[in-house]
């Protein structure tokens, strides 16, 4: 089995714990600070939307492509969302080339839930001909470099790519689909913001690095919509979280998500 967790040396583990005891992280951050975050929208001209996110040394690029498809029988009046993620073999020495592994699939599904359940996109407006032709929104996420907290980095890349998407609409002319001449944005109505916390020893930290994830008890990712509702949650890691910690993280995540919302909105309004 390939090793996905780093084996952290005893000395390094001690160093991490001692530093946490002083209210700091080994990279100099506070316990509730994100790493430097840079988000560059529209990096791929050939995609309808795209964003390149650098969260410390975690580097993720997301691209949006629009397609036309047949709606699902149970939702004839809704467009389709397909989220796909690949942790590329460029990302770490433990990543083998090949079809998406369970980590990539979990990543795609958590990002998908954040987009879907926050009702970010009004899928009823992505219908060309009810029951026959709807838009398929493909969100493809490529993790290029890996240093922990892939969930937040991938989620930010995906939502910024969607928010900045512009595509040529199809118009139904007597049963024929004709490409429109002017690009339009997606019908965006909300923005789900993901934040991820980890529990190491007795400490709760935000935005864990890979090294921190490798020694953590557990991790909790929470997505909040703009009204402050929780719309997606994923617990990770092979340990448990105390009920008290879950309750604490729910509150911390809410205020952190508001902070990150401002950062993302700033990026989008400047795009």
């Amino acid at each position: 089995m390939p090793r996905k967790n780093l084996l952290v040396s005893a000395v390094r583990k001690e160093q991490i714990l001692k530093t946490l005891a002083q209210g700091k992280r080994v990279d100099g951050r506070g316990l509730l600070d994100y790493r430097p975050l840079s988000i560059t929208p529209n990096v791929i001209e050939k995609a309808e939307g795209s964003a390149f996110v650098k969260l410390g040394d975690t580097h993720v690029i997301a691209g949006v492509k629009m397609g036309v498809g047949t709606p699902f029988p149970d939702t004839p009046n809704e467009g389709i969302l397909i989220v796909n993620a690949e942790i590329l073999p460029t990302a770490s020495e433990y990543q083998e080339p090949g079809p998406p592994d369970e980590d990539s699939i979990e990543l795609a599904r958590v990002v998908d839930r954040g987009i879907r359940e926050s009702k970010m996109i009004d899928f009823s407006k992505l219908v060309i001909e009810p029951g026959k032709h709807v838009y398929t929104v493909y969100v493809d996420i490529s993790v290029i470099g890996m240093d922990g907290n892939l969930f937040d980095a991938s989620s930010y890349a995906a939502v910024v790519a969607l928010m900045t998407t512009k595509y040529y609409p199809f118009i139904n002319q007597n049963g024929n689909l004709v490409k429109g001449s002017e690009k339009v944005p997606l019908p965006i109505q909300d923005l789900g913001i993901s934040t991820t916390f980890a529990k190491i020893d007795s400490y709760i930290i935000v935005d864990p690095t890979w090294e921190e994830e490798s020694i953590m008890e557990a991790r909790l990712t929470m997505v909040y919509d703009k009204s402050g509702n929780i719309c997606a949650v994923q617990k990770g890691g092979n340990g448990g979280l105390l009920l008290d910690d879950v309750l604490k993280i729910v509150d911390l995540a809410k205020s952190k998500s508001e902070e990150m919302r401002k950062v993302l909105e700033g990026v989008i309004s400047n795009a």
């Binding site: 040396s9 000395v11 390094r12 001690e14 160093q15 001692k18 080994v26």
Partner: peptide, 16 residues
Amino acid sequence: VYLQPDQKWKVEGDAV
């Protein structure tokens, strides 16, 4: 690669 442990082979420290 075969290694011969140092006299002080167990490395202790505060940071690596």
